[in-house]
């Protein structure tokens, strides 16, 4: 999921709210497919495709209809709520109890439940990262990165920047829905409201990863994102050890994010790398 958020946030330089809608959508699609008896791997891929479509919608709203990216994301996210609800046949929760999931497949290899989750999670994360690294080195991948970096130069080189943005939204939300689908399988249920905070968690993972190690190639960066996500979880776990009331959980995670975002600025008052500064302007 962090990878998905990273794609729009860093590569396209946008904070895409669609994430909050495509995450539960992915969970719902994967869950319903599995319940219908579809192979869990195919079900997970279906979740990915659901995300692609969500991204396509936001992309079209943003580029063709010229709605600002933040608004376009919110619009899609709002609409997706109903769609996800439909997919789940109007239930707020759908259980996967006793069904085959990608994780039970790994368990069949003789792994314990926990190891199965870690193994499958890693396999899928690595697979996605590998595909993305290859993609970003293709002609189209280069064009997409250039579009996020310098749209004017990209257009001057004949890159259809609108198309690239749409494609970026699609891949990004595909990844987010994929992770939604995986989480639902891990949790054993799909939850209509699981999207809340997706973007925040994704952003936090990115920032932590970037604070940890600067200036990495794309592949390295995607890998550190996974580490960033885990660390963010650990920080949250630590915070909760300090007897935080469950109702204050969101506030606590918001504060953790603020700390993560501001810490690097104190160490390095002037960060001259373009990415950081642009990032700030998208959030303002």
């Amino acid at each position: 999921m962090a990878i998905g958020v990273y794609l729009t946030f860093r590569i396209l330089d946008l904070a895409d709210m669609t994430a909050e809608g495509s995450f539960p959508l992915g969970g719902a699609v994967a869950t319903m497919c599995i319940i219908k008896g579809i192979n869990p791997i195919l079900a997970t891929i279906a979740a990915f495709i659901g995300g692609l479509i969500a991204g396509l919608v936001t992309g079209i709203l943003n580029t063709k209809l010229r709605i600002p990216s933040l608004l376009a994301g919110i619009i899609t996210m709002t609409g997706l709520y109903s769609i996800t609800s439909r997919v789940m046949q109007n239930a707020a929760n759908v259980s996967l109890l006793g069904k085959k999931t990608v994780f039970t497949i790994a368990q069949n290899w003789g792994l314990s439940r926990n190891n199965a989750v870690i193994a499958m999670g890693l396999i899928i994360a690595l697979l996605v990262i590998m595909l993305l690294v290859v993609f970003f080195k293709t002609e189209i991948g280069l064009a997409m990165r250039a579009t996020g970096d310098n749209p004017q130069m990209s257009a001057a080189n004949g890159i259809k920047t609108q198309g690239m943005k749409i494609l970026g939204y699609m891949i990004s939300n595909g990844c987010i829905a994929l992770s939604g689908g995986l989480l639902a399988q891990n949790n054993g249920f799909a939850d209509l409201n699981s999207g809340v905070g997706t973007l925040v968690i994704g952003l936090a993972s990115i920032i932590i990863a970037e604070v940890l190690i600067r200036n990495l190639s794309i592949g390295g960066r995607l890998l550190t994102l996974v580490v960033g996500a885990i660390i963010y979880r650990l920080i949250l776990a630590l915070v909760f050890q300090m007897n935080v009331e469950p109702s204050d959980a969101k506030l606590a995670s918001a504060l953790v994010l603020v700390v993560c975002l501001t810490l690097p600025n104190f160490h390095l008052p002037r960060n001259l790398k373009g990415g950081k500064q642009n990032a700030r302007s998208t959030k303002d």
Partner: peptide
């Protein structure tokens, strides 16, 4: 303005070499 700062020298050159041409899913450089 003229270059994409987060891309490498060779990636920028590769982009420019395809100026105005169709871009595909094949290695950029």
């Amino acid at each position: 303005m003229g270059t994409a700062v987060r891309l490498t020298v060779e990636e920028n050159l590769a982009l420019a070499m395809k100026r105005g041409q169709h871009r595909r899913f094949r290695p950029g450089v």
